[in-house]
């Protein structure tokens, strides 16, 4: 440690004076400096490397046996009508429909739980089992079957839940990979799910990952939204997320 660092640490409050000091407040690419008006070489190459990783992440796939083992409950595996990744990217309509010949258990009045790859499987693989484990004991209705879905869009949950006869569906799905984040999980909650529901009829919890929203908070918020949806008989723009901060359980 040099003398300057030492002095900084001994100061009770160290107000930033240099541009690059801003970096300690956020993971965003602040304080990069500049080369003329452009980004300096090192920062430019950092960006290109992150983009290369994100491009590869789009093509990641679920390791279904490992995911099922981590969930530790009986699971049903389904595919959407999109046969492969390229078709999935170009044809979202196919990602919203189940493939032909799928049979699902019937569980009327339950909360269907769908674990789906979405646009990046990495975060689903890492975080969905932990969120599911915390959410299950907090559900206001009986838990329905756990369904793992491949090449899936959010609305595939409507098709799945309608066949199950579920009162609501929670879709845990991989979000679009970003440069800083390739493991972000989203939770979409839909009351009275059936084919043809629009996105305005869902509530969303996004950025579930380390550094984003934690597992406990995500599960608590999902449970709160489900209870509120049960009271209101609807999700979406009609259901305002007014969960007070104090309703979160202590970590």
């Amino acid at each position: 440690m040099n003398a300057r660092d030492d002095a900084a640490l001994n100061r009770p409050s160290h107000a930033p004076a240099l541009w690059r000091d801003l970096r300690r407040f956020t993971d965003a690419r602040v304080g990069l400096g500049r080369a003329g008006t452009a980004v300096p070489t090192a920062a430019h190459l950092d960006f290109q490397e992150a983009h290369a990783r994100a491009r590869d992440a789009v093509w990641s796939a679920l390791d279904v046996p490992a995911l099922a083992a981590a969930i530790g409950l009986p699971v049903t595996l389904v595919h959407s009508s999109a046969p492969d990744r390229r078709t999935y990217l170009l044809r979202p309509d196919l990602g919203r429909r189940l493939a032909d010949g799928v049979t699902l258990p019937h569980a009327p009045g339950s909360v269907a739980l769908v674990v789906a790859d979405g646009l990046c499987a990495i975060g689903v693989q890492r975080h969905a089992p932990a969120v599911l484990q915390r959410l299950l004991p907090m559900l206001p209705l009986p838990a329905g079957p756990v369904v793992i879905a491949e090449q899936a869009r959010v609305a595939l949950g409507d098709d799945i839940a309608e066949r199950i006869g579920a009162a609501a569906v929670v879709v845990m799905i991989g979000e679009r990979p970003g440069l800083s984040t390739t493991d972000s999980l989203g939770l979409y909650i839909t009351w009275a799910p059936r084919r043809g529901r629009t996105d305005a009829e869902r509530n969303c919890i996004s950025n579930v990952r380390p550094g984003g929203m934690g597992y406990d908070d995500a599960a608590a918020k999902a449970a709160w939204l489900l209870r509120a949806a049960q009271g209101l008989g609807a999700t979406g723009v009609a259901l305002k997320d007014e969960m007070p901060a104090t309703a979160l359980p202590a970590p």
Binding site: A28, R29, R34, V39, F47, R176, L179
Partner: peptide, 24 residues
């Protein structure tokens, strides 16, 4: 967007630098 990387929406837009460059 800082460094063209939106860490919340997970997409790339133009950076502050890009705006400065276009102006210059």
């Amino acid at each position: 967007v800082p460094g063209a990387d939106d860490v919340m929406l997970a997409y790339q837009s133009t950076s502050f630098h890009d705006g400065l460059t276009a102006r210059a």
